[in-house]
Computed example of a mutant assay.
Amino acid sequence: MCTKQRFIGVMSGTSMDGVDTVLVEIDGNHIELIASLDYPFPEPLKQRLLAICLGQPTSLDEVGELDHLLGHLFADAVDALLKHANCDASAISAIGNHGQTVFHRPDGAAPFTMQIGDANIIATKTGIDTVADFRRKDMALGGQGAPLVPAFHQSIFATSDSSVVVLNIGGIANISVLRPEHPVIGYDTGPGNMLMDAWCAKHRQHKFDQDAQFALEGKVDKALLAQLMNEPYLSRSAPKSTGRELFNLPWLEAQLSQFTLKPHDVQRTLCEYTAITIANEVAQYQIGAEPELLVCGGGVHNPLLMSRLAELLPQWSVVTTDDKGVDSDNMEAMAFAWLAQRRLHNLPSNLPEVTGASHLASLGVLYFA
């Protein structure tokens, strides 16, 4: 394998609050962040995508047009990153593009997942080979197709005598569990920022609860919290994954139908719901005297959520991945740059013990420039 190579990772998560792009240099197992840029996600495009994600009637014409528009959006985001980093496209070995998930149903008679954003457009417009469609190979092998980042976490975070759990709090919260002398496991614990963001947008017209100001106005409603904790997904065993198909505003409003609560009390309860569903899962993996919870994703900027995690997990050191030298805001985009590197060299990039796939595979489809 060629040693030092540069890759670009592109990620737009369930929150659709921007397109995260990173430029990294990979040398063996070492990955270095060279540059990053958060590219704006057009609000009209976001609303059209949310309509599909929430199950509103659509058409092949609409899905096809969104696939096309997203391809151009992601290509423009890559070009903006290259300009920001003063880097020529010829210096990049490949782009790893996650695509925008519009539906994810890994269980049932016909499991499938759909990420859109035409990679042909990305490769052609940027002039850089592009790797996309990462999840469906794992699902073809009987896996959940998610989460895919635990393999990346395993490659960059070493364990010693104590557990290390890497927690990504995006729209959905997911964990990678690294324990000494145990196989890696990882799965979605439940909602991350998704429900809080949706409720805040409805009642405060803000995309998210800045510094938890909305939640801090309220108090936890124990009856509502108990109701939310009855969600069957929480009691399912791993491997498991979820998304906006389950945890969305209509789901929340159905849960609230028997309650009359002040909006800020609901917001505070939603923050507690995210914290408890995460902490309940993390706590069971404690090994050793110095277990660490390394947090990344947008949730690291919610001070109430971070303090509640620390309070609920008193035996754990709760820090952000920044403290370990990995930018907490760019972890997932870096993971997809790493996945592109693995695909380019035909190296395995899934973890069957995490996703439930029948065997190792090099994930992603290569679209030549």
Rank of each mutant, 00 (worst) to 15 (best):
K4R: 10
I26N: 05
H98R: 08
H345D: 06
C271R: 09
D138P: 08
R342H: 13
D17P: 11
G186T: 00
D322N: 10
L261I: 06
I8Q: 05
L261F: 11
D67F: 08
E231C: 03
I172H: 10
A361V: 03
T320Y: 08
L73C: 09
G64L: 05
N97R: 06
A151N: 14
R244A: 11
E292W: 03
M114Q: 12
A357N: 09
I175R: 05
I156R: 07
M16D: 05
C271D: 03
P57T: 01
S362Y: 12
D322F: 13
A94P: 02
D67G: 02
L167Q: 13
A198F: 02
E281F: 09
G243Q: 06
I8G: 01
V282H: 05
A289E: 04
A215D: 00
P147A: 12
R308V: 07
E231M: 04
F368N: 07
L216Y: 12
E25Y: 08
A238G: 11
A85W: 06
K137D: 04
A212M: 04
A275C: 01
G55L: 05
S160R: 13
E181G: 02
L228M: 07
P42G: 00
A212Y: 02
D221F: 08
G71N: 05
E272Q: 14
A335L: 09
D197F: 02
P111Y: 14
P348A: 14
D67H: 15
A77Y: 02
N86Y: 13
L360F: 15
N120I: 06
T3M: 14
L225T: 08
H359A: 14
A201K: 03
P348D: 13
N86M: 12
M331I: 04
D211Q: 11
